[in-house]
Write a protein that binds this DNA or RNA. Structure first.
Lengths: 347, 347
DNA sequence: GCTAACAATGTGAGCGCTAACACGGAATGT
DNA sequence: ACATTCCGTGTTAGCGCTCACATTGTTAGC
């Protein structure tokens, strides 16, 4: 699209008013669906708007109402399936409500960077923020010393609760428990855990679920190995684990990428999956079905989390507008996708 | 963060002015780094701002200047590595320039949805848009019948050029050529192509590069099989290809996900990689290194594309502010990452 | 028949900022 | 010495919209 040097100025309310033969205020009423406009006048105004191609100026409206109609999202620059999908869910839900979405990406994990990102959002006068940043540091940075900008956390319910912040997200605990129990039920004595970073709330919850399931089953709890969500860390972690306990038969990886790395490590040392070792992941990224073997994993419904976050946030920002009904449960259930990477232990 | 019922109103310019004993305009000058303020006054104003915790109201400023200071990004709801990383690049570059970024996600590929997404961005008064939507339909929808909103396309240079729209992106052609040539040089008679969707400009360019390399080498051009970027389509496509030509020895997949699917398909029919068949992907997603075998692929520098897009867009929006120097070349070079999925053909 | 109530519309002010110009006073030139 | 420039600052008028209130006209009520 070429740059147009001087397009004619966009029509404003007064223009519409003049054309329709009413006052600007009446136009405003029509635009805002006020009931106090006669059907006839409304039609005339609508026609004038149509004819002029009028669009309300959101900036002026924001200034007058002191409401920007924009939500902010803070996220990390990882291309993790979860945050990205959640972001889309947020945008869809916000768009449906007529709200805009601004984003701020935190380049590295430091509370400093989080504060700067938040500051960028504040500069854009967002009315509230959805934080996809579920590391503990981030939560702390976001809750501490900041202006009263309503915030909803997605993902890490634990720390959020500590910080007395509203949060929504996947039911990590139940999901991790299901994954572990699945392996246990297949007959494995115990399940090893290739954990996510423990400063991520999601990572911690998955450990918790794993631990609970083991405890319930009376299984011994092997030392966990911590990774950073990356396939590389799954690979390295798996080798470590194998070195520490060559007899292991079942591994629950904290996400699918790490599971992929584990798969590779097992292949390198000649262990077959699932004949020798079973693997279960978490997330159900679209590719998981095409791993070798197809990965048994816990599906998360990220987009729903995003939607939920928006509705929860709306309740904080505009209590009157928020869907009146009871607040939806903040926990999105998971789904265990049993594929071929898990099976009974070798006999 | 709890909802605070009534926080004290944020300080405005006049408050700062009063405290500093100057006029609001002088405060404005300080905020905007005008040279026409004495050092002494500036210090006093700065101190007053500090004391009051003043932050300029971006909305009011936008109304007065008729510039929102916000860029829009249109993207699809795919969790493709490329668009997401580009998005981050855009945000980083914009943030560094003091610009905000609003997003609009297109839920499905229809020009209608694209128009609606664009409309959402317009409603937010973005000054320009970066379109990560590089499908032909999308480009057409974006360039057609729309207001004079400056737009930069990322990714698909071909169609953009047709539409006379500025565009930046990876040098797909050279990348695809390099991938194909790499296989040819290993001794393969020819290279099959598991193509991306042909209504995506990126997909088309990759075909083009592949075709050129084959032609240059005088190699026969096998029929291509078209996929949709997904691992599933790579899997299905590979099986099709194998059925059509069981003697194939080298495949260039249009992206890494499709390569993953292909890897799986080959495994299922007992073909070893790279001993029997070589595979090369495109993108170099972080996981590619942990595929089995590690995937030879073409790395794209998505974040740089995003940055470039922002600078190009800035040139359209604010010619005076744009870095004066020559415009950067709009093509970001690729990098061939040779790993273990490619090797000489079986003898 | 006169007032109360309400519906439909208009008027004026102001959201917080910047643009454009006005205005003194110091510095410069001849 | 006086006009001319420039510097630092203040004044005024909007940007396009909504809010609160004023003003009509109409219907209802006693």
């Amino acid at each position: 699209m070429r740059h147009m040097p001087d397009s004619p100025p966009a029509p404003v309310m007064t223009d519409v008013a003049r054309l329709a033969g009413v006052s600007h205020q009446t136009v405003s009423r029509v635009v805002n669906d006020s009931p106090h406009v006669s059907a006839q006048t409304r039609t005339r105004v609508l026609a004038a708007m149509e004819q002029l191609g009028y669009r309300r100026n959101a900036v002026a409206r924001a200034l007058a109402t002191r409401r920007s109609g924009t939500l902010g999202v803070i996220t990390f620059d990882t291309v993790l399936h979860g945050p990205v999908t959640t972001l889309y869910g947020v945008e869809q839900a916000a768009g449906a409500l007529g709200l805009g979405v601004s984003i701020a990406v935190v380049d590295r994990v430091s509370s400093d960077a989080v504060v700067r990102a938040l500051s960028r959002l504040e500069d854009q006068s967002v009315e509230g923020v959805v934080a996809l940043a579920t590391q503990e540091d981030a939560v702390r940075a976001l809750t501490a010393g900041l202006r009263a900008l309503p915030t909803v956390f997605v993902g890490g319910l634990a720390g959020a609760a500590e910080a007395d912040a509203p949060a929504v997200g996947t039911d990590q605990l139940t999901g991790a428990r299901a994954a572990t129990r699945h392996l246990l039920q297949l007959g494995h004595r115990t399940v090893h855990h290739l954990a996510g970073p423990q400063d991520w709330l999601d990572g911690r919850w998955r450990v918790e679920g794993w631990r609970e399931a083991l405890r319930t089953a009376g299984a011994e709890e092997p030392e966990l190995v911590e990774g950073d969500w990356s396939a590389r860390s799954g690979y390295v972690g798996m080798r470590e684990m194998l070195a520490a306990d060559p007899t292991l038969t079942a591994v629950f990886a904290a996400n699918d990428q790490m599971a992929l790395g584990a798969l590779r490590a097992l292949d390198e040392v000649g262990r077959r999956v699932p004949d020798d070792v079973s693997i279960v992941g978490f997330d159900d990224v679209p590719e998981a079905e095409f791993f070798r073997p197809p990965l048994t994993t816990v599906r998360q419904h990220f987009a729903e989390s995003g939607q939920l976050a928006v509705h929860l946030l709306l309740g904080l920002i505009r209590p009157e507008d928020a869907a009146a009904g009871a607040a939806p449960p903040p926990l999105v259930p998971t789904e265990l996708m049993v594929r071929r990477s898990s099976g009974p232990p070798p006999t």
